[in-house]
């Protein structure tokens, strides 16, 4: 299994631990990740607000880089996935647009052809890799760990572009977590938005939302919240102390990246997966839960 790997900007800085954990987990599972050389930011759902042709063009270039590898493009970020898939859908449905975009790409020496799929680490686990195979790789079942699966918007919506599973009642996260031996809790905000993309223009609302999201998982009895998107992770983790200020109840809940959860079950230690880099310390919890496991 070989994929063109599109890390996305956050993996180079604030979510470096996701880079670390993704690479370790992929290697342990035997998934080959070839990082695209010269990938750029996907636009993060912002560039189209200035110029949507530009947003489509830069992602056409990103996809073209994967086409050169002749491998499907794998991401670990919901928004990167959505941005790349949006560009692909537009280009594949509109010959005229594709032609114009390719005129620009030609000057950069690349061409968008539309020959590779764009997928996400979560989908690869469920569909390409298979949960039975994943189960076989589990060395340390996460028994007793109660996880709240927080999907994040852009891996589900809009379904016309994402289309992997029914956005009203997805199950992929639960199936992965259960394969790893963890216990899933159902909570109101399971399919909610984290608010990350509006944290600057709508700070007050997004902080409130962060608190609601954390509390909802806690109220349902979760030990930690796990998400397939670094942006959700950043919003819920990095801003948690700020969000706390608007709440009387304690909203503290550790937030894990999906590959970190997988890595723990594969037998990696929390430190190896960069879990020590989180603002809300997950280590005491994991020590307690995993030691007994």
């Amino acid at each position: 299994m070989r994929y063109g790997f599109f890390p996305g900007c956050t993996l180079e800085s604030a979510a470096k631990e996701l880079m670390i954990s993704t690479k370790k987990v992929a290697a342990a599972l035997g998934i080959e990740l070839v990082e695209l050389e010269g990938w750029t930011c996907c636009g993060a759902s912002h560039i189209q607000d200035v110029d949507d042709f530009l947003a489509t063009s830069i992602n056409a270039r990103n996809i073209a880089l994967a086409e050169q590898l002749d491998a499907p493009l794998l991401t670990v970020c919901n928004t990167c996935t959505l941005m790349l898939r949006t560009a692909k859908q537009k280009l594949d449905r509109n010959e005229q647009l594709k032609k114009r975009v390719n005129q620009g790409l030609a000057e950069a020496g690349v061409e968008y052809r539309g020959t590779v799929e764009i997928t996400h680490f979560l989908w690869v686990l469920v569909k390409d890799y298979g949960l039975d195979r994943l189960k076989e790789k589990v060395k340390r079942p996460l028994e007793g760990l109660k996880v709240a699966n927080f999907y994040g918007c852009h891996i589900l919506r809009p379904p016309q572009i994402m289309g992997f599973e029914n956005p009203l009642n997805p199950q992929s996260m639960e199936r992965v977590a259960e394969a790893l031996g963890a216990e899933c809790v159902d909570f109101d905000q399971r399919l909610a938005c984290c608010g990350f993309h509006a944290v600057f223009p709508a700070e007050k609302e997004v902080m409130k939302l962060t608190g609601i999201n954390c509390l909802s998982s806690k109220d349902a009895g979760a030990d930690c919240l796990v998400t397939p998107c670094p942006l959700c992770q950043m919003q819920l983790d990095m801003y948690q102390p700020d969000a706390q200020r608007g709440f009387d109840q304690d909203i503290t809940v550790p937030i894990l990246h999906l590959p970190q959860l997988v890595g723990l079950a594969l037998g990696f230690e929390p430190a190896e997966l960069g879990i020590g880099r989180h603002i809300v310390d997950a280590i005491p919890l994991l020590r307690k839960k995993l030691v007994t496991a």
Binding site: C153, L156, P167, H197, A198
Partner: peptide, 14 residues
């Protein structure tokens, strides 16, 4: 009236 405040949650289009 808050045009830039949209959360990009994609619920409306969905």
């Amino acid at each position: 009236k808050g045009l830039w405040k949209c959360l990009h949650c994609m619920e409306c289009v969905t």
